[in-house]
């Protein structure tokens, strides 16, 4: 009984941790499937986290915050596309540069505008945050441990962005495999010459893909600062952009496996929090750092071909030039 509730709570925590990861990983999927390395996820998310919290604080509206976050994600995505697609710059360097720049820019602007030591004001007012939505009869269902508590704790009680992320997985899969846009997107990441000779603009497709990636990172960043917490703090993405990239690789650049990877990584995170300092029978205290490092170790093992294989899109990282 007690264990059961613990597990339900653990799973609910997993969903909360997985949400920004999933949004960023899907963002990475669109970018990388088009052939553009998604190293800028961290920066796009962090930038969006800053502007959404700022706008929500000033305007009092979480929705305006979301709009600002998405707009920021798109603006940074445009910058990336300008550097990598239009000017065929090094995609790894561009992503790293963006991450570093935004890591400084957020706190620098926050200090100048709010004078709170590099944070944005606490979001306390009504409507400034995306709060948990309670589904109908959740309170009643909670009294019935099984399956009622699954409903009340696991399905109900999350904020809107969590549900949005859940819907985005089938939507992305549909877009990628069932539409004209998806066909072209997958093609441009494999062989941009084929797309170009078919009369489709490689540049335009890649801009679209990177922009979608910016939108999704914008939502992910908004989640971090206006849903998961109440404001922007320095470095609040804490490597989630890179973890999302790892999840994307672990999910072999496919929507559903990527969802699985995000849930797995989020679960290890939730577990680490839960197991902090807990003396387990037989094993003793598992250092929390080891559990937190697990996703990275798993990804390295996958890349090394020890756990399955990960074949990236063939044209990834290669700027397209018309010459052969």
């Amino acid at each position: 009984m007690e264990t059961y509730t613990l597990i339900v709570l653990l799973l609910a925590a997993t969903i909360r941790v997985a949400t920004p990861l999933l949004l960023a990983a899907l963002a990475g999927m669109f970018s990388e499937r088009s052939g553009v390395i998604a190293l800028g996820l961290e920066g796009m998310m962090l930038g969006a986290a800053f502007t959404s919290a700022s706008v929500a604080a000033v305007s009092g509206s979480a929705w305006l915050g979301l709009g600002a976050g998405v707009a920021t994600g798109m603006a940074l995505a445009l910058l990336l596309a300008f550097a990598c697609v239009t000017h065929r710059g090094n995609q790894v360097v561009a992503g790293m540069a963006l991450n570093i720049m935004v890591a400084g820019l957020g706190p620098a602007l926050a200090l100048a505008w709010f004078d709170l030591g590099g944070q944005t004001p606490q979001l306390e007012g009504p409507g400034q945050r995306f709060l948990a939505l309670t589904w109908p009869w959740a309170a009643a269902a909670d009294k019935v441990p099984f399956p009622g508590r699954l409903y009340s704790q696991l399905l109900s009680g999350h904020n809107l962005i969590v549900y949005l992320a859940a819907v985005l997985v089938p939507l992305s899969a549909w877009l990628l495999y069932r539409t004209r846009f998806g066909l072209r997107l997958r093609a441009v990441g494999e062989n941009p010459s084929a797309v170009d000779t078919a009369g489709i603009s490689v540049t335009r497709l890649r801009y679209q893909a990177v922009l979608i990636s910016g939108v999704l990172c914008g939502v992910a960043g908004t989640y971090l600062s206006t849903a998961a917490s109440a404001g922007f703090v320095r470095d609040m993405t804490a490597g989630k952009g890179y973890l999302a990239l790892a999840a994307l690789i672990f999910g072999k650049w496919k929507p559903y496996p990527t969802l699985g990877a995000c849930l797995l990584f989020a679960f290890t995170d939730a577990l680490a929090t839960r197991l902090q300092g807990v003396d387990l029978p037989l094993v003793g205290v598992i250092p929390v750092q080891f559990i937190l490092a697990l996703p990275y170790v798993l990804t390295v093992l996958l890349l090394a071909g020890f756990v399955g294989t990960a074949v990236p899109p063939a044209a990834i990282g290669v700027p397209y030039a018309k010459e052969k």
Binding site: L79, F82, A83, C84, H87, G89, N90, Q91, V93, A94, M96, A97, L98, N99, I100, M101, V102, A103, G104, L105, G106, P107, A108, L111, A112, D115, G118, R234
Partner: peptide
């Protein structure tokens, strides 16, 4: 109104312009 984060911004911009947008 300027903190050390400004340096990080400048570093990022230098990497961006020297490395990715040359």
């Amino acid at each position: 109104h300027v903190n050390r984060d400004m340096v990080v911004v400048i570093q990022g911009l230098v990497i961006l312009l020297c490395g990715a947008m040359e």
